[in-house]
């Protein structure tokens, strides 16, 4: 059976019809064609699918699309554009916080929520805060540096 879901994605109201067993990440990628949000594991481990739902980071592979009814969802496409990057995106670029880039959209969405939630961050708390995001390339060092740099700028 199909069900209608209405939500706000990157500031725009959208209404979609989908099967009940559609996950939020499937709605975002396949119905809305916002393919910046990735699917790494589809088993709630890797965080590549992280988006903001009502302001908080969630793994969109582990949320049903119907659970996002009425919610405000922000994806990587909603935070900045190529010539006006979000401070978190700029910091990842400057610090080489990515290699293949597969984990990056999820890392950035998780890191923005982390900075919004925690008044003070050091390397250790950044690492702890990003435990839900796996990167198979960078070794994390430059990601941690990027998040620290972005945090300082976001608080200016």
């Amino acid at each position: 059976m199909s069900i209608t879901v209405s939500l706000i994605v990157n500031g725009k109201a959208v209404t979609q019809t989908c099967l009940e067993n559609t996950t939020l990440v499937e709605l975002i990628r396949e119905k809305l064609q916002l393919t910046g949000t990735h699917v790494g594991c589809d088993t709630s481990q890797c965080g590549a699918c992280t988006v903001h739902m009502n302001g908080r980071a969630v793994k969109a592979c582990t949320v049903l699309a119907v659970q996002a009814e009425g919610a405000e969802v922000v994806t990587i496409e909603g935070i900045g554009v190529a010539d006006n990057l979000h401070p978190m995106q700029s910091a990842f670029k400057e610090c080489h916080g990515l290699q293949c880039g597969f984990c990056t959209p999820g890392m950035i969405m998780a890191a923005i929520d982390l900075v919004n939630q925690k008044a003070e961050l050091d390397d250790q708390s950044i690492r702890k805060g990003l435990e839900g995001n796996i990167c198979r390339c960078t070794g994390y060092h430059n990601i941690v540096e990027a998040v620290g740099r972005a945090a300082a700028r976001m608080r200016e």
Partner: peptide, 9 residues
């Protein structure tokens, strides 16, 4: 418990 995203849900 788990990680930040798990704790949010």
């Amino acid at each position: 418990i788990g990680d930040a995203q798990v704790r949010n849900r």
